[in-house]
């Protein structure tokens, strides 16, 4: 059981059994849909954990990585994306012009996100040097 993902998969199975129990007791389409969604999310996480478990299981001290971690220091794009989603939805309730305004910011911040990601990749390439191009 050292993989541990089995635990999450077991959880998903318990969930599924409970949902099937609910279905047998009272078959409502709304409940079936919500339950199916939850079960799928849980199974997917379990499978993801299972696939990702090998590195964590390797004993011993951490091996030095040849590839540097690229860590973004800050991201204005992400902040603006969050705020523009807020503006768009706020506009739906308050004033329609905000929807267009927010959509504009969203497009701009997605553009900035692309720039951020590109410069991050460029930095990583530079740090890796020429011998290991990716």
């Amino acid at each position: 059981m050292r993989g541990g993902a089995i635990a999450i998969l077991a959880w998903a199975t318990v969930l599924l059994v409970l949902f099937i129990g609910n279905w047998i007791w009272d078959a409502k389409p709304v409940n079936a849909a919500t339950a199916a969604f939850a079960a799928v999310v849980t199974y997917a996480t379990g499978v993801a954990l299972w696939l990702a478990r090998r590195e964590a299981l390797r004993p011993g001290p951490p091996a030095p990585r040849s590839e540097p971690e690229s860590v973004p220091q800050s991201s204005l794009a992400a902040v603006l994306i969050g705020l523009s989603v807020g503006t768009i939805l706020f506009g739906l309730a308050w004033a329609n012009f905000l929807v267009y305004f927010g959509a504009g910011i969203l497009v701009l911040s997605l553009g900035r996100l692309v720039l951020e990601l590109r410069s991050e990749r460029a930095t990583r390439r530079r740090l890796l040097g020429e011998e290991e191009p990716r």
């Binding site: 992400a78 969050g82 807020g86 939805l89 706020f90 996100l113």
Partner: peptide, 18 residues
């Protein structure tokens, strides 16, 4: 995915303020 988390924080805060 720290950017997703950051965007999530600001969406949440916008939600709180709204």
């Amino acid at each position: 995915a720290p950017r997703l988390s950051l965007a999530g924080f600001w969406t949440w805060l916008a939600g709180g303020l709204v």
